[in-house]
Design a protein around this nucleic acid. Structure first.
Lengths: 336, 336
DNA sequence: CCGCGCGATGGAAGCGGTTTCACCAATGCC
DNA sequence: GGCATTGGTGAAACCGCTTCCATCGCGCGG
């Protein structure tokens, strides 16, 4: 029922080949023919058939993105939308369609593998590993360019782009130290979340270098309540503390709240810094300093990387780590 | 480079037609031939080419889902993942691949329209309308089965599945009234969010029917802070209040916090009920009563509906509204 | 013993594009 | 003015799979 290229060509009085050239942006078409084809297409409401296109052209002009389950650190602090925006923008700019997949079961994963291997996409971006996932390996084997978002488990020879969580944790901590704070606590994320672990390591490194105690550490659930509870435990355990670095803005907000309820002034008594520089950070009272990870850039770089991998096949894997940036607000201003 | 059906057939010593029958689940194949084909396929690592499949078979065995920008009510209280789970499960069960799209700009929307109209998907699920979106109309015109999640703007003759926000608001309010509460406040969502508006209407209807004042209403930003602030304004405005119904669990949590800080006991002095029955509701102190919308069911029904629309073409549009359910916890127990 | 129905099979015609190749007219050059 | 270019064009060969249709072998009832 939908119009075909053949019909358009006939209506325009040219051959199918010429009509095809018009739609594939081939410049070797006379202005006259081009106009005829375009108006015929408009008239008939022609839309090229994607299946036929990919079959004949051996490419689909689309890139698959496999997103993780919610609960991943990417969903905290609104990271996911920013990442997808970065990816989407870069792909769009290259005329490619971003296609998302959210597999939920093992069966889904299997079907997805078939789908991705079946030529529906030209390349794949993997946003987080479902544990012991065979997907990346299988895709590699099929020669489908693949790039990870975030560091995959070590030992895999794959391309990835990551933000530097370690440097982020270090930077946040150093900022507090430069402020003159000495009894600095850290509210870490769950131990099994890789990014959170690296932030903790960054904290430890900075404290170690400054010869400060690095054992005021509590783990929280990454959300506001987690921060509130962890703060309570920290105060009970460590007594007076003059700064807190939380592994997420939500936890920092919770911690700040707990401090204020107990009569501590922020930043006068206790400086607080969060992580991710989410919208939340600007909305707290006082506004929260935070570490801004270039997540949009990460998305853009992932897209660029996978595009370059698809352009020239047989390339070796490439890695990239993007540095963080401090976003200083009232919660860590110098007051003494 | 990847193996083709032809190679598999040759390796198995059968014709391409027979090999094809094996993969399309056609039962008219001898056990012997089937085994030969399957082992040959395994050997060669054969995966059917999706493009060729859809071209020849005139269907893609996949369904597109267009998700809205974050900020939509669907992203609040973890609604989105639940909805996608429902859709995904039902599609999976029917052997279909769920394919997500997150257009961000007008240009994206245009490319997406081409993509969807180009036969890449058999049907489309639209999760929220970007205002004045021509997408649904264009898809309808192309004969692509389309179903909305949530009620589209009135006047459109389209199929949709929605949860009953009005009934939800009414149910929550009636619950509070049955508890014997009389001065009941409502923390509503932003006025421009359709679902939130309906919840407010439900609140008003229930109060009206019970001949109670329905003007203790404040709007909030749907998140915890919004609830906290709105609660403050309500107490300042209305003085003593014995129950609060908030349009989201996050706002209810914020409100409950504000009440407790000011020395009110929940539920003894003030009963609090939220909306959406999110994970958050079970985690507050005391646990929060809430209105559970059958979001997974909504997803499943959307999938079912669009499948039935694709099965028989030329069907008229169909609508469906799913009723809410009360989830009673400690924040609204009877204490007098 | 023969024709019939039936399940299994292979041949072949598409599905709707892309792309190579040959061709032709018009142009530029010596 | 002859000849090599060059830009625009169309014919036709695929791309890899589905599916219709004809064929074939076989067990069966008449």
């Amino acid at each position: 029922m939908p119009a075909t290229l053949d019909q358009v060509a006939r209506a325009a009085g040219v051959s199918r080949a010429t009509a095809a050239r018009v739609f594939s942006g081939n410049p070797r078409v006379s202005e006259e023919a081009r106009r005829a084809v375009e108006s015929a297409a408009m008239q008939l409401g022609y839309v090229p058939n994607g299946a036929a296109r990919s079959l004949a052209g051996r490419r689909s002009d689309s890139v698959g993105v496999v997103v993780p389950e919610p609960g991943s650190i990417l969903f905290l602090d609104q990271l996911m939308p920013r990442l997808l925006r970065g990816i989407g923008e870069e792909l769009s700019a290259n005329g490619l369609q971003m296609v998302l997949f959210a597999p939920q079961s093992t069966a889904d994963l299997q079907r997805l593998e078939q789908y991705l291997a079946g030529g529906h996409v030209d390349a794949v971006l993997l946003l987080a590993l479902h544990e012991s996932d065979s997907l990346p390996t299988r895709l590699q084997a099929r020669g489908i360019p693949t790039v990870f978002g975030g560091r995959p488990r070590p030992g895999l020879d794959v391309s990835f782009v990551d933000v530097d969580n370690h440097a982020g944790g270090r930077t946040a901590t150093e900022h507090l130290i430069e402020l003159g704070r000495r009894r600095i606590a850290h509210i870490a994320g769950p131990a099994h979340v890789p990014g959170a672990q690296e932030r903790l390591d960054g904290f430890r490194e900075a404290m170690w270098k400054a010869a400060l105690r690095a054992d005021f550490v509590e783990h929280g659930t990454l959300d506001r309540d987690g921060g509130e509870l962890a703060m309570g435990r920290l105060l009970a355990m460590a007594g007076e503390i003059d700064a807190v670095f939380a592994a997420s803005d939500a936890m920092a907000a919770g911690a700040m709240w707990a401090l204020q309820v107990l009569g501590r002034r922020v930043p006068d008594d206790v400086a607080v810094i969060g992580f991710d520089d989410s919208p939340l950070a600007a909305a707290t009272q006082p506004p929260l300093s935070s570490v801004r990870q270039p997540i949009e850039d990460m998305g853009r770089e992932m897209a660029r990387l996978v595009l370059s991998l698809s352009a020239v096949r047989g390339q070796s894997s490439r890695q990239m780590v993007l540095g963080p940036e401090l976003s200083v607000r009232e919660s860590t201003v110098m007051v003494r």
